[in-house]
């Protein structure tokens, strides 16, 4: 049997979700954002909720998420996505509302909005991309930058005496009464991608039940910012990011 015989519609087992449109994504080659966008698209398609989902895009690399995902979107000011999502969800409680935020957006400038949306138990999904660096603005220090990690604004490595400590905000969110499901995932190999997708699906399903906020942190790479190849970045993430941000469910009630 030749390859040509195999490539027939009836044999198709995996392809791009129709919810992810044909616009090529602007992300750097190998960027984790693309994988997570793809998973959101797959979940929205599988749950058949394209008409009922409203996304909130952040400021940062994912600012243009709305150019790729084929449903209604609002673009929030830096850090304000959880407040924007609160406004949407409170006024349209029947919709699935999610935010997509990076570490600077969620854990620095938007810390208050994040904590209070979670504390109120807003029935939204927060997808949190933690790659320990500011990608869009050119590789500056993030709240989640690891100790010793070099960035454009800590070129000699993060010094905790000057810059404080890496902020594990997801651990903080676990303690809030309003969060229902808090998990930390990654997308660096096919098994982790499947798990991350299940987590995103669970978040969307939770929001329908109205029992609180679901937070899905995706420990991610920024190979351009980290100045490594995509494959090296994945390996570096496993060795260095995972000990600080361990993978797994933190809260599931």
């Amino acid at each position: 049997m030749t390859t040509k015989d195999i490539i027939k519609p009836e044999n198709l087992v995996y392809t791009k979700s129709r919810i992810l449109n044909d616009t090529p994504m602007h992300y750097c080659p190998g960027c984790s954002h693309g994988v997570v966008h793809k998973l959101i698209a797959e979940v929205v398609e599988e749950m058949d909720i394209q008409e009922d989902v409203i996304g909130v895009a952040p400021v940062g690399c994912a600012v243009f998420a709305y150019n790729y995902l084929d449903f209604d979107f609002q673009e929030a000011a830096h850090g304000r996505a959880p407040a924007v999502a609160t406004g949407i969800k409170r006024l349209m409680p029947e919709k699935y509302v999610f935010t997509y935020q990076g570490d600077g957006d969620l854990a620095a400038i938007g810390t208050a909005e994040t904590i209070h949306a979670c504390n109120r138990g807003e029935n939204i999904v927060i997808i949190f991309i933690n790659n320990g660096i500011y990608g869009m603005t050119g590789g500056q220090m993030a709240p989640t930058t690891l100790e010793g990690m070099k960035t454009a604004t800590c070129p000699y490595g993060r010094d905790t005496a000057i810059n404080g400590y890496p902020l594990n905000i997801t651990d903080l969110l676990v303690k809030l009464e309003g969060t229902r499901y808090v998990t930390r995932q990654s997308v660096h190999n096919s098994a982790s991608v499947r798990k991350a997708k299940n987590a995103i699906r669970k978040g969307f399903e939770n929001s329908k039940e109205g029992k609180g906020t679901s937070v899905i942190e995706i420990v991610s790479t920024c190979n351009s910012g980290w100045k490594m190849t995509p494959d090296q970045s994945n390996k570096w993430m496993v060795e260095n990011m995972f000990p600080a941000y361990p993978i797994g469910d933190l809260k599931d009630i």
Partner: peptide
């Protein structure tokens, strides 16, 4: 809906979200 936000900053962004839905 009436909601006391955590700050004026959050409140105006909740307005953004609601207004964006045509409310």
């Amino acid at each position: 809906v009436v909601l006391q936000a955590e700050s004026e900053v959050a409140a105006i962004n909740m307005v953004y979200g609601g207004a964006g839905c045509g409310k």
